[in-house]
Amino acid sequence: MESAIPSHLQTARSRHRRVPDDYAPPYPSFVARHKPAVASVIMAYFGVQFRGELTAAANEALASIAKRFAGENGPTHWDRAQHVDQAGYTNVVSVAYWDDAGRFDAWFDGAREAWTGGGATEGLGRFIEVLRPHVARYETLFSSLGRPEGVAVLADGMSGEVQEHAYWGGMRDRIPLSQTDAMTPGGEPRAVRDGARIRVVAHDNLCLIRSGQDWSDTEASERKMYLDDVEPVLREGMDFLRDDGVPIGCYANRYMRVVDAQGRPTEKSYGQSWWKSLAALERWAESHPTHVRIFGAAMKYLSTLGPSAKLRLYHEVTVAAADEQFFEYLGCHERTGMLTAVQVAADQSS
């Protein structure tokens, strides 16, 4: 049994884990392992926003960012997904990952100017949301081996079975920084206007989660069980966070359906949300009725199927320092992504 925290990031603890040293989890899970030379990773979300059917302008933007991804210093991995937000707009988001900050920096300025640097396009919003965390500031978790997703595609490989999972608090215990730091948020979000662009300066220890499901390997009976018994409960919780998450510390939530190169839905989805703090995310996960129902449905499903379950689950959770964040919006509505945080700050100060 391995620790989720790689040996080169382990340090003397001043903050204790939630479980004793002899804790044995009831089922196996795994984490991504980067080479020790990797100091940080970059997670860059490029979104387009529009109403109704895919517009020509949106299609052109999606083709242009895909071309940039394929160019010099482009990401090691990227994927694309879409959802309809609380204001009824479709958002198509291309998510790219690097593990070389120099390559990303050489690539980003040109991509940023091309994406948000021009004037606003009628009927089309664009946004960029980037985190570039030190490797001590995020964790991953996978229910099975063989098909990495998200930032884990960049990793050198996967771990063996890890100890820190299947209990409340495991998410925090897998983040190396948690050994010595409570990772509490600090500062207030503010907006910086640059012509038509709005840049959001958030706050220290902002939290991002991407939590995914892949049912492409399931056979008829398992697929029916997932789509009938689990997915609707998951969707209910995702919709709650999308529509009513702000009071519990969730600035924005997107329940995304992954699409292929032609824009067709695949049998993969993920929830992606911005949180004021890791603690706020933990409180929702541990005690809110919407997540309690998700957890209950998932446990019933997994206990019924046991090791034969073909559903693949994963997540990545980041707690980013203030200087590891970049948010910029052009022509988007005011509840898009981290624009919500600025609205919340303004409401609290008025």
Rank of each mutant, 00 (worst) to 15 (best):
M1S: 14
A4G: 15
H8T: 02
Q10G: 09
Q10I: 04
T11C: 10
T11Y: 01
S14G: 05
R15D: 06
R18M: 11
R18V: 12
R18N: 11
V19L: 11
P20S: 11
D21H: 11
Y27P: 00
P28C: 05
A37W: 01
V38T: 08
A39Q: 14
V41C: 14
Q49P: 01
T55S: 15
N59L: 14
E60F: 05
L62R: 13
L62Q: 14
K67N: 06
K67E: 14
K67G: 02
R68V: 00
N73Q: 10
N73V: 00
G74E: 07
D79H: 14
R80P: 00
Q82H: 13
Q82N: 11
H83P: 00
V84M: 10
D85I: 07
N91A: 12
N91K: 13
V92P: 02
V93E: 05
S94E: 09
V95P: 00
D100A: 09
D100S: 08
G102E: 14
D105F: 08
W107I: 04
F108Q: 10
F108V: 10
F108C: 10
A111C: 11
A111E: 02
R112K: 15
R112I: 00
G123S: 09
G123L: 05
G125M: 05
R126L: 12
V130E: 07
P133V: 07
H134G: 13
A136Q: 12
A136L: 02
R137D: 10
T140V: 06
R147G: 01
R147Q: 08
R147H: 08
L154H: 05
M158F: 12
S159Q: 03
Q163D: 03
Q163S: 12
H165M: 05
A166K: 07
R172M: 09
D173K: 02
Q179G: 12
T180S: 11
G186H: 13
G187I: 12
E188N: 05
R190A: 02
G195S: 08
I198N: 01
R199C: 11
V201L: 15
V201I: 15
A202T: 13
D204T: 13
N205Y: 12
C207P: 05
C207V: 07
L208H: 05
D214N: 12
W215F: 13
T218L: 10
T218S: 14
E219V: 08
K224W: 01
L227V: 11
D228N: 10
V230H: 11
E231N: 13
E236P: 03
F240G: 03
F240A: 04
V246A: 10
I248G: 02
C250A: 11
C250H: 02
A252C: 03
A261Y: 00
Q262V: 08
E267S: 15
K268G: 06
Y270I: 00
L278I: 05
H288A: 06
P289A: 04
P289F: 01
T290D: 09
H291R: 02
V292K: 14
M299R: 15
K300H: 07
K300R: 14
T304V: 10
L305P: 04
P307W: 01
S308G: 03
A309M: 04
A309T: 13
E316D: 13
T318V: 15
A320W: 06
D323F: 07
F327I: 06
G331Y: 03
C332R: 02
H333P: 13
R335G: 10
G337W: 01
T340I: 09
V342W: 03
Q343R: 14
A346G: 07
A346K: 15
